[in-house]
Design a binder for these strands. Sequence first.
DNA 1: TTATCCATGTAAGAAGTTACATGATTGA
DNA 2: TCAATCATGTAACTTCTTACATGGATAA
Lengths: 187, 187
Amino acid sequence: MDVRTLCLGVLTLGDASGYEIKKKLEEEFAHFYDASFGSIYPALNKLQTEGMVDCTYEAQSKRPDKKVYNLTSEGRLALVKELSDHPSPDRIRSEFIVMMLFARLLPASHVSQVIDDRIASFEKSINKFQALCDGKNSGTSLFVSGYGVAIYETAMKYLQENRHLVEAEALLAQVQDNRINEFDAAD
Amino acid sequence: MDVRTLCLGVLTLGDASGYEIKKKLEEEFAHFYDASFGSIYPALNKLQTEGMVDCTYEAQSKRPDKKVYNLTSEGRLALVKELSDHPSPDRIRSEFIVMMLFARLLPASHVSQVIDDRIASFEKSINKFQALCDGKNSGTSLFVSGYGVAIYETAMKYLQENRHLVEAEALLAQVQDNRINEFDAAD
DNA sequence: TTATCCATGTAAGAAGTTACATGATTGA
DNA sequence: TCAATCATGTAACTTCTTACATGGATAA
């Protein structure tokens, strides 16, 4: 799955410009997939040459023209085919977790700060998903935003209840380092 | 954060070869970061030319030589500096979630199969993290594997309890498609 | 005998990000 | 006046994956 497929998918929800597709991704797919303009615009142009999408220009006063894309039947077929493969495993890239694993190398205060920030950002995500839940009628969107709420709530609660494990280790390592430094200083 | 940083991190746990670093990543960092040999070996070579790691050859009978790397003080410093930045938000790429969002385009049976598979794979992940929990003494590893258990358990439970939302929509769309096809056939 | 583990490496290519260019509009 | 929103696009660059090359040992 790539940005092209994602664009086709968004277009099943209605005609849209590249800019609108990007916005839709930020709202709807929040946290589960993202793409930049630098990948969306070329993808749409390529999809057009391949006949997967049609494009009509919408002139706008006081704004650049809008290129509104709509899915062709070939495009819809290609999307369904793409979605029919079994999904590859989720790919997660968490700098936060890596940092936690090496917490003993860092100042304890910094570790605490990072955890505080992470909890705050989880809270934001939960609110965002919650708002999405409330505004949604379709079963699938409800399912996905509910999934987001469930996972981020668990993650947040876990951090609150278990942060001491990491913080204790960071603190211990720091104390030991200081002791060594004191020994060094004493020499 | 990139593969280079990850290699430096693993080397704080003890000297290791590229191959061993890869294995360690698969065990310890499972699901939160991964890297292929094709990125690890070049990263280690570059780190060596930069003086971040030393390398000693270990001749092995009946096996190729092993290049065992160990962290230099510059390497440790660079790692700490890298980890001192605030971690960027987790990046998740979930084909599964995208597929759920477009479930209405797919055969209901296929959707059900995909959810079954996902539940099974979550179960595997939980067992893996659980085993990791049991085998670990350090607070940080316990924290991280516990985090994995908590999240995957939530995800699994959520799928079990809410899969009907997606399955119903896929089924409904399918029935409507069939109805249209019947109309078409009647013409 | 077939696959998997051990062990390192390279080269080609995919896929994306970042930064830039352009430029008016609107809200703080 | 400063930032953000709308709107599209390109080019350079980064980063990683995949596939290949090599080859003995071991387990099913």
